[in-house]
Write a protein that binds this DNA or RNA. Structure first.
Lengths: 221, 221
DNA sequence: CGCCATCTTAAATAAGCAATTAACTTAATC
DNA sequence: GATTAAGTTAATTGCTTATTTAAGATGGCG
């Protein structure tokens, strides 16, 4: 009945270090000993506080995505009546920061990419809790940009083109500074936001201009 | 001095099954037993023929990328005097097939994505042998599309936008048929080729139209 | 202080896996 | 068909790692 505060402090530290190590090395390559060493704890600590390595991993991505979404909400912090162009730009910026941030923010993106290429059991949850609402959000914005005349397929394709550009930079996360040595990180990210927004808006406009018949292979209903 | 042919047959079978299993589960999650079971061989076979699990993995990606590049060469099989637009489209198609093919072709893409998010020791080789020449190829085409006035940074950003769109579809490889149930696979891939080409050419044109000063943060020399 | 739940620790346990070994079988060449 | 290198096999070794255990230390509260 008597709770001590040193316990919850250590638990929080373990979660933080676990997030970092998992994001860096992935679930399978991370040992409990790695995490406990980073948190200056005994190897039994993980099992004591979280039950198992798997349970800890689940806690990690839950908290990582929670903070990431809190810091960069799906609507980008914009009022609901913002123009779709502004919404798109905010969305791209949020994604890039989620992917490229050096702190906790970036860890969520790292873990997401690893789950997509190398799934653990957690992928199902991630798909439902993270990817699905995100897809809704992106498609909503694209729909407004393309107009009612566009097919569902056109919306889906454009949404993927935008998102994949952002995700792709997560893949080169570690190599980006090397590729663009002369730029500061924040400069680089903002330049990328500008580029992806410009590139994508042009792409979306081009799709909008195509005749509808060309792309109605899908959506027969 | 006496060579037997049953050995090289088994070795080839092991390589083939190893490629499939590695592409599906990744290096760390694949056990030697998994591979040998798939190839109807004893667990000692991998060490007998390849020396170690790591050496086998190296053989796997070498052969996988070799076949992938043979089937879809960097120039897309086009004559050197082809228009950059045709070259871009051929490149996009080649990438998509490398990412989405169900057979051996697709395995190279799977392994590449896993290496990028979750590197093993092999990543350095992959970067030098696969990624670097590819980047050269893409940037060459983009450069021709953007013209001499464009900055190196603009070329690099556009190249990434194009490539990442293709890579991104590799990330959803398994979920694509589910998202577009009504389309046959080949239909879907060709539709994606059309979409990415259209989208990217529009994006590149838009970048070309921007004033040079806006994007000269990099490349001070 | 003295109780007791909470937390910490070192050591033990057990499971999984890559790699090795040595005995055994097969196929090519004479 | 005898010889021998090549290939195959089951059993074993040794290492890494998640998890458990039980004993010990610590902090809050009466």
């Amino acid at each position: 009945m008597v709770k001590r505060k040193d316990g919850i402090e250590r638990k929080a530290l373990l979660l933080k270090e676990a997030t970092r190590v998992f994001a860096q090395k992935g679930f399978r390559d991370t040992t409990i000993a790695d995490i406990c060493r980073a948190a200056h704890s005994n190897t039994a600590a993980v099992n004591y506080y979280f039950g198992s390595k798997e349970d800890l991993y689940a806690e990690v991505w839950k908290s990582a995505f929670h903070t990431a979404l809190q810091q960069f909400p799906l609507d980008g912090g914009l009022p609901p009546n913002a123009t779709p162009v502004d919404q798109l730009k905010a969305l791209i910026r949020a994604h890039l920061y989620r992917m490229l941030d050096d702190g906790t923010l970036g860890h969520a993106g790292q873990i997401l990419l690893m789950e997509l290429t190398n799934p653990t059991k957690s992928l199902e949850f991630i798909k439902n809790d993270v990817i699905a609402p995100l897809r809704q959000q992106v498609r909503g914005i694209i729909r407004r940009l393309l107009g009612e005349a566009a097919t569902e397929e056109q919306v889906a394709f454009c949404a993927m083109s935008v998102i994949h550009q952002c995700f792709g930079f997560g893949l080169k996360r570690d190599r980006l500074p090397q590729l663009f040595q002369s730029m500061k990180k924040t400069q680089l990210v903002e330049a990328l936001v500008e580029h992806i927004t410009l590139f994508s808006l042009a792409g979306i406009s081009a799709v909008k201009k195509t005749r509808r018949e060309r792309t109605t292979l899908c959506e027969k209903k």
